[in-house]
Design a protein around this nucleic acid. Sequence first.
RNA 1: GUGAUUGUAGCUCAGUUGGUUAGAGCGCCUGGUUGUGGCCCAGGAGGUCGGGGGUUCGAGUCCCCUCGUUCACCCCA
Length: 412
Amino acid sequence: MANEFQPLQGMSDIYAPEIYLWRMMEERARAVFNAYGYDELRTPSLEKLSVFKRSIGDTTDVVKKEMYSFKPSKHELALRPEGTAGTIRHLAGRGEEGLNARVFYIAPMFRYERPQAGRKRQFHQVGVEATGEANPLADAECIAMQKNLLDAWGLTGSKIQISTRGEPSDRKPVAEGLRAALRPFENELCEDCQRRIDENVLRVIDCKNESCGKIVDQIPSAIEFMSPASRDYLDQVVEALSAMDIEVTVNPKLIRGLDYYVHTVWEISHSALGAQDALAGGGRYEIALGKKGIPGVGFAIGFERAIMALNACGITGEQFAPDGGIWLVSLGEAALKENMKLARELRAKGIRCGMELEAKSMKAQMRKASRSGANTVVIRGDEELEKGIAVVKDMAEGSQQEISLEEFVRDA
RNA sequence: GUGAUUGUAGCUCAGUUGGUUAGAGCGCCUGGUUGUGGCCCAGGAGGUCGGGGGUUCGAGUCCCCUCGUUCACCCCA
Protein backbone atom coordinates (compact mmCIF):
# COMPACT_ATOMS: atom_id res chain seq x y z
CA MET A 1 0.00 0.00 0.00
CA ALA A 2 1.19 3.47 -0.77
CA ASN A 3 2.84 5.23 2.13
CA GLU A 4 0.66 8.29 2.15
CA PHE A 5 -2.41 6.22 2.89
CA GLN A 6 -0.89 4.32 5.75
CA PRO A 7 -1.08 5.40 9.36
CA LEU A 8 2.17 5.95 11.20
CA GLN A 9 4.38 3.03 12.05
CA GLY A 10 2.91 0.91 14.80
CA MET A 11 -0.49 2.56 14.59
CA SER A 12 -3.63 1.18 13.00
CA ASP A 13 -6.95 2.25 11.67
CA ILE A 14 -9.69 0.18 13.23
CA TYR A 15 -12.74 -0.43 11.07
CA ALA A 16 -15.60 -2.80 10.41
CA PRO A 17 -15.95 -5.62 11.02
CA GLU A 18 -13.28 -5.59 13.74
CA ILE A 19 -14.69 -2.39 15.20
CA TYR A 20 -17.82 -4.32 16.21
CA LEU A 21 -15.68 -6.40 18.53
CA TRP A 22 -14.20 -3.26 20.05
CA ARG A 23 -17.63 -1.87 20.66
CA MET A 24 -18.84 -5.06 22.28
CA MET A 25 -15.81 -5.06 24.55
CA GLU A 26 -16.30 -1.44 25.52
CA GLU A 27 -19.99 -1.86 26.20
CA ARG A 28 -19.53 -4.93 28.35
CA ALA A 29 -16.62 -3.33 30.17
CA ARG A 30 -18.83 -0.39 31.11
CA ALA A 31 -21.53 -2.75 32.30
CA VAL A 32 -19.17 -4.79 34.47
CA PHE A 33 -17.55 -1.69 35.99
CA ASN A 34 -20.93 -0.20 36.67
CA ALA A 35 -21.89 -3.35 38.55
CA TYR A 36 -18.87 -2.82 40.81
CA GLY A 37 -19.73 0.83 41.35
CA TYR A 38 -16.96 2.32 39.24
CA ASP A 39 -17.36 5.52 37.25
CA GLU A 40 -15.66 6.42 34.02
CA LEU A 41 -12.83 8.93 34.00
CA ARG A 42 -11.47 10.57 30.88
CA THR A 43 -8.17 12.29 31.32
CA PRO A 44 -6.21 14.07 28.57
CA SER A 45 -3.87 12.04 26.40
CA LEU A 46 -1.22 14.67 26.92
CA GLU A 47 0.23 15.45 30.33
CA LYS A 48 3.25 17.16 31.73
CA LEU A 49 6.18 14.82 31.40
CA SER A 50 6.74 15.06 35.14
CA VAL A 51 3.44 13.31 35.81
CA PHE A 52 4.87 10.15 34.31
CA LYS A 53 8.41 10.57 35.51
CA ARG A 54 7.38 10.84 39.12
CA SER A 55 4.92 7.99 39.25
CA ILE A 56 6.17 5.40 36.77
CA GLY A 57 9.77 6.05 37.72
CA ASP A 58 12.36 7.87 35.64
CA THR A 59 14.67 4.89 35.51
CA THR A 60 12.12 2.62 33.85
CA ASP A 61 12.41 1.94 30.14
CA VAL A 62 8.87 3.18 29.63
CA VAL A 63 9.92 6.62 30.77
CA LYS A 64 13.53 6.56 29.64
CA LYS A 65 13.12 5.51 26.04
CA GLU A 66 9.54 4.79 25.12
CA MET A 67 7.73 8.08 25.58
CA TYR A 68 6.54 10.47 22.95
CA SER A 69 7.64 13.68 24.59
CA PHE A 70 8.21 17.16 23.28
CA LYS A 71 8.37 20.72 24.46
CA PRO A 72 5.98 22.96 22.52
CA SER A 73 6.38 25.87 24.92
CA LYS A 74 7.15 26.22 28.58
CA HIS A 75 6.52 22.69 29.79
CA GLU A 76 7.83 19.42 28.61
CA LEU A 77 4.85 17.23 27.67
CA ALA A 78 4.30 13.58 26.88
CA LEU A 79 1.61 11.36 25.44
CA ARG A 80 0.53 8.97 28.16
CA PRO A 81 2.27 5.58 27.99
CA GLU A 82 -0.17 4.10 30.50
CA GLY A 83 -3.31 5.09 32.35
CA THR A 84 -2.50 5.02 36.03
CA ALA A 85 -0.27 8.09 36.28
CA GLY A 86 -2.81 10.47 34.79
CA THR A 87 -5.66 8.94 36.74
CA ILE A 88 -3.82 9.40 40.01
CA ARG A 89 -2.80 12.91 39.02
CA HIS A 90 -6.51 13.64 38.67
CA LEU A 91 -7.56 11.91 41.87
CA ALA A 92 -4.82 13.57 43.89
CA GLY A 93 -6.31 16.89 42.86
CA ARG A 94 -9.66 15.93 44.33
CA GLY A 95 -8.40 15.91 47.89
CA GLU A 96 -9.98 13.57 50.38
CA GLU A 97 -12.53 12.10 47.99
CA GLY A 98 -9.73 11.18 45.62
CA LEU A 99 -8.30 8.92 48.28
CA ASN A 100 -11.28 6.64 48.19
CA ALA A 101 -12.26 6.62 44.55
CA ARG A 102 -13.16 3.94 42.07
CA VAL A 103 -12.74 4.85 38.43
CA PHE A 104 -12.15 3.21 35.10
CA TYR A 105 -10.88 4.35 31.73
CA ILE A 106 -10.86 3.10 28.17
CA ALA A 107 -8.24 4.99 26.25
CA PRO A 108 -5.38 4.96 23.77
CA MET A 109 -1.81 4.82 25.10
CA PHE A 110 1.41 5.64 23.31
CA ARG A 111 4.79 4.06 23.51
CA TYR A 112 7.63 4.61 21.08
CA GLU A 113 8.79 1.03 20.59
CA ARG A 114 9.48 -1.28 17.70
CA PRO A 115 6.16 -2.92 16.87
CA GLN A 116 5.74 -6.66 17.04
CA ALA A 117 2.99 -9.18 17.67
CA GLY A 118 0.60 -7.61 20.17
CA ARG A 119 2.63 -4.45 20.43
CA LYS A 120 1.63 -1.18 18.86
CA ARG A 121 2.88 2.35 19.30
CA GLN A 122 -0.66 3.47 19.81
CA PHE A 123 -2.48 0.78 21.71
CA HIS A 124 -5.59 0.74 23.82
CA GLN A 125 -6.21 -0.16 27.37
CA VAL A 126 -9.17 -0.55 29.59
CA GLY A 127 -8.18 -0.10 33.18
CA VAL A 128 -9.42 0.65 36.66
CA GLU A 129 -8.02 2.29 39.75
CA ALA A 130 -9.35 1.96 43.28
CA THR A 131 -7.60 4.27 45.70
CA GLY A 132 -7.43 3.56 49.39
CA GLU A 133 -5.11 2.09 51.98
CA ALA A 134 -3.59 -1.30 51.31
CA ASN A 135 -6.12 -4.03 51.92
CA PRO A 136 -5.83 -7.59 50.60
CA LEU A 137 -9.57 -7.71 49.98
CA ALA A 138 -9.39 -4.66 47.73
CA ASP A 139 -6.70 -6.36 45.67
CA ALA A 140 -8.74 -9.56 45.49
CA GLU A 141 -11.84 -7.66 44.41
CA CYS A 142 -9.86 -5.92 41.72
CA ILE A 143 -8.69 -9.24 40.31
CA ALA A 144 -12.19 -10.64 40.59
CA MET A 145 -13.58 -7.74 38.60
CA GLN A 146 -10.92 -8.17 35.95
CA LYS A 147 -11.74 -11.85 35.66
CA ASN A 148 -15.40 -10.92 35.50
CA LEU A 149 -14.70 -8.70 32.53
CA LEU A 150 -12.69 -11.32 30.65
CA ASP A 151 -15.55 -13.76 31.22
CA ALA A 152 -18.06 -11.19 29.99
CA TRP A 153 -16.08 -10.93 26.77
CA GLY A 154 -16.17 -14.69 26.39
CA LEU A 155 -12.42 -15.10 26.79
CA THR A 156 -11.34 -18.54 27.89
CA GLY A 157 -7.96 -20.11 28.48
CA SER A 158 -6.29 -17.20 30.22
CA LYS A 159 -4.11 -17.73 33.27
CA ILE A 160 -3.64 -15.45 36.24
CA GLN A 161 -0.25 -15.33 37.86
CA ILE A 162 0.24 -13.43 41.06
CA SER A 163 3.15 -12.33 43.17
CA THR A 164 4.18 -9.53 45.48
CA ARG A 165 6.72 -6.76 45.46
CA GLY A 166 6.44 -6.40 49.19
CA GLU A 167 6.51 -3.15 51.03
CA PRO A 168 8.95 -0.39 50.10
CA SER A 169 11.05 -1.40 53.10
CA ASP A 170 11.45 -4.86 51.59
CA ARG A 171 13.18 -3.61 48.49
CA LYS A 172 16.62 -3.30 49.92
CA PRO A 173 16.76 -6.71 51.62
CA VAL A 174 15.27 -8.34 48.52
CA ALA A 175 17.77 -6.75 46.16
CA GLU A 176 20.68 -7.48 48.43
CA GLY A 177 19.54 -10.99 49.13
CA LEU A 178 19.13 -11.80 45.47
CA ARG A 179 22.45 -10.25 44.55
CA ALA A 180 24.24 -12.23 47.20
CA ALA A 181 22.55 -15.42 46.07
CA LEU A 182 23.40 -14.76 42.41
CA ARG A 183 27.02 -13.71 42.83
CA PRO A 184 28.43 -17.25 42.87
CA PHE A 185 26.78 -17.84 39.49
CA GLU A 186 27.61 -14.47 38.01
CA ASN A 187 29.87 -15.82 35.28
CA GLU A 188 27.27 -18.32 34.14
CA LEU A 189 24.59 -15.69 33.59
CA CYS A 190 23.90 -14.21 30.18
CA GLU A 191 25.44 -10.89 29.27
CA ASP A 192 22.27 -8.96 29.97
CA CYS A 193 21.90 -10.51 33.39
CA GLN A 194 25.47 -9.78 34.36
CA ARG A 195 24.63 -6.15 33.77
CA ARG A 196 21.21 -6.48 35.43
CA ILE A 197 22.60 -8.01 38.59
CA ASP A 198 23.71 -4.55 39.66
CA GLU A 199 21.32 -2.40 37.67
CA ASN A 200 18.05 -4.17 38.30
CA VAL A 201 18.35 -7.56 39.97
CA LEU A 202 14.68 -8.32 39.68
CA ARG A 203 15.06 -8.49 35.92
CA VAL A 204 17.41 -11.42 36.27
CA ILE A 205 14.56 -13.34 37.81
CA ASP A 206 12.40 -13.28 34.71
CA CYS A 207 15.17 -13.56 32.15
CA LYS A 208 14.05 -15.75 29.27
CA ASN A 209 17.46 -17.24 28.82
CA GLU A 210 17.31 -20.92 29.67
CA SER A 211 20.55 -21.14 31.63
CA CYS A 212 19.69 -18.05 33.65
CA GLY A 213 16.36 -19.66 34.46
CA LYS A 214 18.10 -22.71 35.84
CA ILE A 215 20.26 -20.60 38.10
CA VAL A 216 17.28 -18.61 39.31
CA ASP A 217 15.52 -21.85 40.18
CA GLN A 218 18.36 -22.74 42.51
CA ILE A 219 18.30 -19.57 44.58
CA PRO A 220 15.62 -18.42 47.00
CA SER A 221 12.77 -16.41 45.48
CA ALA A 222 12.42 -12.69 46.06
CA ILE A 223 9.48 -13.33 48.36
CA GLU A 224 11.67 -15.24 50.75
CA PHE A 225 13.63 -12.08 51.51
CA MET A 226 10.53 -10.11 52.41
CA SER A 227 9.09 -9.34 55.80
CA PRO A 228 6.54 -11.73 57.31
CA ALA A 229 3.91 -9.00 56.99
CA SER A 230 4.44 -8.74 53.23
CA ARG A 231 4.21 -12.49 52.81
CA ASP A 232 1.12 -12.61 54.93
CA TYR A 233 -0.48 -9.92 52.78
CA LEU A 234 -0.03 -12.01 49.65
CA ASP A 235 -1.43 -15.07 51.43
CA GLN A 236 -4.54 -13.13 52.32
CA VAL A 237 -5.07 -12.02 48.74
CA VAL A 238 -4.74 -15.55 47.48
CA GLU A 239 -7.09 -16.83 50.16
CA ALA A 240 -9.73 -14.24 49.32
CA LEU A 241 -9.49 -15.19 45.65
CA SER A 242 -9.84 -18.86 46.33
CA ALA A 243 -12.93 -18.08 48.45
CA MET A 244 -14.40 -16.55 45.27
CA ASP A 245 -13.35 -19.59 43.23
CA ILE A 246 -10.86 -17.62 41.23
CA GLU A 247 -7.90 -19.68 40.19
CA VAL A 248 -4.51 -18.06 40.42
CA THR A 249 -0.97 -19.32 40.38
CA VAL A 250 1.53 -17.78 42.73
CA ASN A 251 4.65 -17.14 40.73
CA PRO A 252 7.45 -15.48 42.69
CA LYS A 253 9.34 -15.02 39.42
CA LEU A 254 6.68 -12.68 38.10
CA ILE A 255 8.18 -9.22 37.83
CA ARG A 256 6.38 -6.01 37.00
CA GLY A 257 8.55 -3.20 35.89
CA LEU A 258 6.87 0.01 36.93
CA ASP A 259 8.34 1.62 40.04
CA TYR A 260 5.09 2.47 41.73
CA TYR A 261 4.07 -1.10 42.56
CA VAL A 262 3.98 -2.34 46.15
CA HIS A 263 2.57 -5.59 47.50
CA THR A 264 0.34 -7.49 45.10
CA VAL A 265 1.22 -7.65 41.43
CA TRP A 266 -0.31 -9.90 38.82
CA GLU A 267 -0.42 -10.67 35.17
CA ILE A 268 -2.87 -12.48 32.96
CA SER A 269 -1.46 -14.38 30.03
CA HIS A 270 -2.88 -16.33 27.13
CA SER A 271 -1.15 -18.93 25.03
CA ALA A 272 -2.48 -17.51 21.76
CA LEU A 273 -0.44 -14.35 22.03
CA GLY A 274 3.10 -15.21 20.97
CA ALA A 275 6.16 -13.88 22.71
CA GLN A 276 4.32 -11.08 24.47
CA ASP A 277 1.82 -13.35 26.14
CA ALA A 278 0.55 -10.99 28.83
CA LEU A 279 -2.78 -9.51 27.88
CA ALA A 280 -3.38 -7.78 31.16
CA GLY A 281 -1.62 -6.79 34.31
CA GLY A 282 -2.26 -5.09 37.56
CA GLY A 283 -1.03 -4.37 40.98
CA ARG A 284 -1.12 -2.34 44.13
CA TYR A 285 0.79 0.91 44.07
CA GLU A 286 1.79 3.90 46.08
CA ILE A 287 2.21 6.98 43.94
CA ALA A 288 3.86 10.08 45.33
CA LEU A 289 2.50 13.31 43.93
CA GLY A 290 3.51 16.50 45.61
CA LYS A 291 3.63 15.88 49.32
CA LYS A 292 1.20 13.04 49.45
CA GLY A 293 1.42 9.43 48.52
CA ILE A 294 -1.69 8.00 46.93
CA PRO A 295 -2.23 4.33 47.65
CA GLY A 296 -4.38 2.25 45.36
CA VAL A 297 -4.83 -0.85 43.32
CA GLY A 298 -5.66 -1.22 39.67
CA PHE A 299 -5.35 -3.19 36.48
CA ALA A 300 -5.09 -2.65 32.77
CA ILE A 301 -6.06 -4.89 29.89
CA GLY A 302 -4.58 -4.40 26.45
CA PHE A 303 -7.33 -4.33 23.83
CA GLU A 304 -5.15 -5.44 20.97
CA ARG A 305 -3.84 -8.40 22.91
CA ALA A 306 -7.23 -9.29 24.30
CA ILE A 307 -8.55 -9.29 20.74
CA MET A 308 -5.84 -11.70 19.62
CA ALA A 309 -6.86 -14.00 22.43
CA LEU A 310 -10.56 -13.61 21.66
CA ASN A 311 -9.95 -14.39 18.00
CA ALA A 312 -8.17 -17.54 19.10
CA CYS A 313 -11.33 -18.41 21.03
CA GLY A 314 -13.30 -18.04 17.81
CA ILE A 315 -14.78 -14.69 18.79
CA THR A 316 -14.63 -12.13 15.99
CA GLY A 317 -16.08 -8.81 14.95
CA GLU A 318 -18.52 -10.28 12.44
CA GLN A 319 -20.41 -11.89 15.29
CA PHE A 320 -21.27 -8.47 16.68
CA ALA A 321 -22.20 -6.76 13.42
CA PRO A 322 -25.35 -4.68 13.60
CA ASP A 323 -28.62 -6.09 12.36
CA GLY A 324 -28.69 -6.11 8.57
CA GLY A 325 -31.74 -3.87 8.45
CA ILE A 326 -33.73 -2.89 5.42
CA TRP A 327 -32.75 -2.01 1.86
CA LEU A 328 -35.02 0.04 -0.36
CA VAL A 329 -35.16 -0.69 -4.06
CA SER A 330 -36.51 2.08 -6.25
CA LEU A 331 -37.80 1.58 -9.79
CA GLY A 332 -38.07 4.92 -11.49
CA GLU A 333 -37.52 8.52 -10.45
CA ALA A 334 -40.80 8.81 -8.57
CA ALA A 335 -40.04 5.75 -6.45
CA LEU A 336 -36.55 7.07 -5.77
CA LYS A 337 -37.98 10.24 -4.26
CA GLU A 338 -40.64 8.39 -2.31
CA ASN A 339 -38.06 5.99 -0.94
CA MET A 340 -35.98 8.88 0.31
CA LYS A 341 -39.00 9.81 2.42
CA LEU A 342 -39.56 6.23 3.52
CA ALA A 343 -35.91 5.84 4.49
CA ARG A 344 -36.19 8.91 6.68
CA GLU A 345 -39.12 7.42 8.54
CA LEU A 346 -37.41 4.08 9.05
CA ARG A 347 -34.15 5.67 10.12
CA ALA A 348 -36.01 7.83 12.61
CA LYS A 349 -37.07 4.57 14.21
CA GLY A 350 -33.44 3.58 14.51
CA ILE A 351 -33.55 1.01 11.74
CA ARG A 352 -30.46 0.55 9.61
CA CYS A 353 -31.73 1.41 6.18
CA GLY A 354 -29.90 1.75 2.90
CA MET A 355 -30.79 2.50 -0.68
CA GLU A 356 -29.25 3.32 -4.04
CA LEU A 357 -29.34 7.07 -4.62
CA GLU A 358 -29.35 6.93 -8.39
CA ALA A 359 -31.48 5.12 -10.92
CA LYS A 360 -29.97 1.70 -11.46
CA SER A 361 -31.21 -1.60 -12.73
CA MET A 362 -33.13 -3.74 -10.34
CA LYS A 363 -30.48 -6.39 -10.61
CA ALA A 364 -27.79 -3.97 -9.52
CA GLN A 365 -29.93 -2.77 -6.65
CA MET A 366 -30.69 -6.29 -5.50
CA ARG A 367 -27.06 -7.21 -5.64
CA LYS A 368 -26.20 -4.23 -3.50
CA ALA A 369 -28.98 -5.07 -1.08
CA SER A 370 -27.68 -8.58 -0.76
CA ARG A 371 -24.14 -7.44 -0.13
CA SER A 372 -25.20 -4.86 2.39
CA GLY A 373 -26.42 -7.73 4.52
CA ALA A 374 -29.99 -6.43 4.67
CA ASN A 375 -32.54 -8.91 6.00
CA THR A 376 -35.41 -7.24 4.25
CA VAL A 377 -35.76 -5.55 0.90
CA VAL A 378 -38.63 -3.22 0.05
CA ILE A 379 -39.34 -2.85 -3.63
CA ARG A 380 -41.31 0.08 -4.95
CA GLY A 381 -42.10 1.16 -8.49
CA ASP A 382 -44.85 3.19 -10.12
CA GLU A 383 -47.37 0.43 -9.59
CA GLU A 384 -46.72 0.16 -5.85
CA LEU A 385 -46.75 3.92 -5.40
CA GLU A 386 -50.14 4.09 -7.05
CA LYS A 387 -51.60 1.35 -4.86
CA GLY A 388 -49.90 2.55 -1.67
CA ILE A 389 -48.27 -0.79 -1.13
CA ALA A 390 -44.78 -2.23 -0.97
CA VAL A 391 -43.30 -5.51 -2.07
CA VAL A 392 -41.44 -6.81 0.96
CA LYS A 393 -38.86 -9.50 0.41
CA ASP A 394 -37.23 -11.66 3.04
CA MET A 395 -33.67 -12.08 1.81
CA ALA A 396 -32.86 -15.23 3.72
CA GLU A 397 -36.09 -17.02 2.71
CA GLY A 398 -36.29 -15.53 -0.74
CA SER A 399 -40.02 -15.09 -0.25
CA GLN A 400 -41.91 -11.87 -0.81
CA GLN A 401 -45.33 -10.40 -0.26
CA GLU A 402 -47.27 -7.26 -0.93
CA ILE A 403 -48.43 -5.30 2.06
CA SER A 404 -49.72 -1.79 2.55
CA LEU A 405 -46.97 0.73 3.09
CA GLU A 406 -48.68 2.04 6.19
CA GLU A 407 -48.72 -1.38 7.78
CA PHE A 408 -45.10 -2.02 6.83
CA VAL A 409 -43.85 1.17 8.45
CA ARG A 410 -45.94 0.55 11.55
CA ASP A 411 -44.54 -2.95 12.08
CA ALA A 412 -40.98 -2.22 11.07
C1' G B 1 18.18 0.92 20.04
C1' U B 2 19.63 -4.48 18.13
C1' G B 3 18.77 -8.84 14.88
C1' A B 4 15.93 -11.16 11.16
C1' U B 5 11.82 -11.10 7.51
C1' U B 6 8.98 -9.16 3.74
C1' G B 7 6.87 -5.23 0.29
C1' U B 8 3.73 -7.05 -7.45
C1' A B 9 -4.12 -4.96 -8.73
C1' G B 10 -9.12 -3.74 -3.02
C1' C B 11 -7.48 -8.99 -0.88
C1' U B 12 -4.32 -13.70 -1.31
C1' C B 13 -0.39 -14.56 -4.31
C1' A B 14 2.33 -16.30 -9.53
C1' G B 15 6.08 -13.94 -12.22
C1' U B 16 11.50 -19.02 -15.01
C1' U B 17 19.27 -17.88 -15.40
C1' G B 18 17.36 -9.58 -16.03
C1' G B 19 14.54 -9.53 -22.53
C1' U B 20 8.86 -7.28 -26.15
C1' U B 21 1.93 -4.27 -24.35
C1' A B 22 3.08 -7.48 -15.84
C1' G B 23 -0.59 -12.39 -14.74
C1' A B 24 -4.20 -15.73 -11.75
C1' G B 25 -7.97 -16.54 -8.07
C1' C B 26 -11.27 -13.86 -5.05
C1' G B 27 -13.63 -9.08 -4.79
C1' C B 28 -15.69 -4.89 -7.65
C1' C B 29 -18.63 -2.91 -12.08
C1' U B 30 -21.79 -4.10 -16.45
C1' G B 31 -24.51 -7.53 -19.18
C1' G B 32 -26.93 -12.68 -19.91
C1' U B 33 -35.56 -11.04 -21.96
C1' U B 34 -39.62 -6.33 -19.79
C1' G B 35 -39.24 -5.31 -12.17
C1' U B 36 -35.56 -9.42 -8.31
C1' G B 37 -29.76 -10.85 -4.83
C1' G B 38 -26.86 -15.24 -3.24
C1' C B 39 -25.08 -20.22 -8.10
C1' C B 40 -23.44 -20.20 -13.36
C1' C B 41 -21.62 -17.70 -18.01
C1' A B 42 -19.55 -13.41 -20.73
C1' G B 43 -17.29 -8.75 -20.82
C1' G B 44 -14.96 -4.62 -18.19
C1' A B 45 -12.46 -1.35 -14.75
C1' G B 46 -8.27 -1.44 -11.61
C1' G B 47 -0.99 -1.79 -10.93
C1' U B 48 4.25 4.85 -11.48
C1' C B 49 5.76 -3.84 -9.59
C1' G B 50 6.54 0.67 -1.67
C1' G B 51 9.85 5.13 -2.89
C1' G B 52 14.72 7.11 -4.67
C1' G B 53 19.36 6.33 -6.89
C1' G B 54 22.78 2.96 -9.55
C1' U B 55 24.59 -1.20 -12.94
C1' U B 56 22.89 -2.59 -18.01
C1' C B 57 21.35 -2.02 -24.86
C1' G B 58 17.36 -3.55 -21.48
C1' A B 59 15.33 -4.42 -14.21
C1' G B 60 9.36 -6.52 -10.99
C1' U B 61 13.86 -9.51 -11.40
C1' C B 62 21.04 -7.44 -9.69
C1' C B 63 23.47 -3.45 -6.14
C1' C B 64 22.95 0.78 -2.61
C1' C B 65 19.86 4.02 0.21
C1' U B 66 15.09 5.00 2.18
C1' C B 67 9.98 4.18 3.96
C1' G B 68 6.81 0.56 5.66
C1' U B 69 5.16 -4.96 7.02
C1' U B 70 5.90 -9.14 9.99
C1' C B 71 8.68 -11.53 13.94
C1' A B 72 12.19 -11.70 17.96
C1' C B 73 15.49 -9.08 21.65
C1' C B 74 15.48 -4.92 25.31
C1' C B 75 10.95 -3.59 27.82
C1' C B 76 5.89 -3.76 28.45
C1' A B 77 -0.55 -4.29 27.91
